[in-house]
């Protein structure tokens, strides 16, 4: 690799770093607004079509967007800042779902990363566990739903278990690959500093493999959301998935649509948060140009 950024004369090192980088100047505000509009016109057009169509040809199943949003507001939002402007309806349904999601998903991250570290550093272990990992990786995770119900019954543990089992493999495999692919020069550098085994893992291997690990975690967010909803559609008495199905079965289509909007928003929020975390943690990767390799 060539030296990434020969920014300053080494003889005059006190000069400011090229921290921000030169980059092109920001375009004027109206130009940016126009760009945003250009990027979003299709979505906007579709929403308008939905609204117009639903009003022109009223149907019980497809209420107009504005009504859906109104329902969404009245069910899930309040003016009370102490509950983050989210109503009891939100916390009773989405809160339960998110608690299941977080337990299963965070558990999968902890176990997946830890096991991936071990498998990534040991050829023996990785050979030994390869068939099991492959088996679960290739299996459609929702197929495990009956098994989860058999084991745990209709309990929160069932949902958590399914989310965990559905996401842990992808995180594990990406971590193991990431760790195994860490440049040996970094490991040697760390060893020459007489780092303890633990420090070598936490300060060198884990950060060096972070791009790959976070890629696995990002993919797992989507899977975890799917499993959260599906497991609630199938066998629960609470949660977002349950509420959507319940609304559908009681012909409360407006409420069903509001639930769908909420699920979509939660997905967008989680993905956005994930991107922000990645940007923060992987700044070095983009800046060193290693991301292009």
């Amino acid at each position: 690799m060539s030296s990434p950024a020969a920014v300053a004369d080494p003889a005059a090192p006190t000069g400011g770093p090229a921290a921000g980088g030169p980059g092109p100047a920001r375009p004027p505000r109206w130009r940016r607004a126009l760009t945003t509009l250009a990027d979003g016109w299709l979505l906007l057009a579709l929403l308008v079509v939905w609204e117009v169509w639903a009003r022109a040809d009223p149907s019980l199943f497809f209420p107009p967007l504005t009504k859906v949003l109104g329902e969404f507001g009245s069910v899930y939002l309040t003016s009370d800042p102490s509950t983050l402007f989210l109503s009891a309806g939100f916390w009773d349904n989405a809160g339960v779902s998110l608690a299941r999601f977080l337990q299963g998903w965070l558990g999968a991250i902890v176990v997946g990363v830890a096991a991936g570290l071990a498998l990534g550093r040991s050829r023996v272990l990785s050979r030994m566990y390869d068939p099991i990992v492959r088996f679960f990786m290739s299996m459609p995770k929702v197929a495990l739903l009956p098994v989860a119900v058999q084991i745990f019954g209709v309990t929160d543990a069932m949902n958590v278990f399914l989310i965990f089992l559905g996401t842990v493999w992808i995180i594990l495999v990406n971590t193991a690959d990431g760790i195994a692919g860490v440049d040996e020069s970094w490991v040697r550098s760390g060893r020459s500093l007489r780092l303890s085994r633990f420090a070598l893992f936490t300060r060198v291997l884990l950060p060096a493999a972070a791009p790959r690990i976070l890629a696995g975690i990002r993919v797992s967010v989507g899977t975890a959301l799917i499993l959260m909803i599906v497991s609630e559609l199938y066998a629960t008495t609470s949660g977002l998935g349950y509420q959507i199905v319940y609304a559908e079965r009681t012909f409360a289509y407006l409420e069903m649509w509001a639930g769908l909007v909420l699920v979509a928003l939660i997905g967008i929020a989680l993905n956005g948060a994930m991107s922000a975390v990645e940007r923060r943690l992987l700044r070095w990767e983009r800046r060193t140009g290693l991301a292009d390799l």
Binding site: P4, S185, S189, A199, A208, W284, L290
Partner: peptide, 30 residues
């Protein structure tokens, strides 16, 4: 202990996910 190595490829011996300060402090961690 008491022995230090300077490698050829600085971009793969310093850790880019740490500031210079933390890179140096890590050497004294043990």
């Amino acid at each position: 202990p008491g022995l230090a190595v300077v490698f050829q490829d600085y971009s793969r011996s310093l850790f880019p996910w740490m500031s210079v300060r933390r890179n140096l402090a890590l050497a004294a961690a043990s």
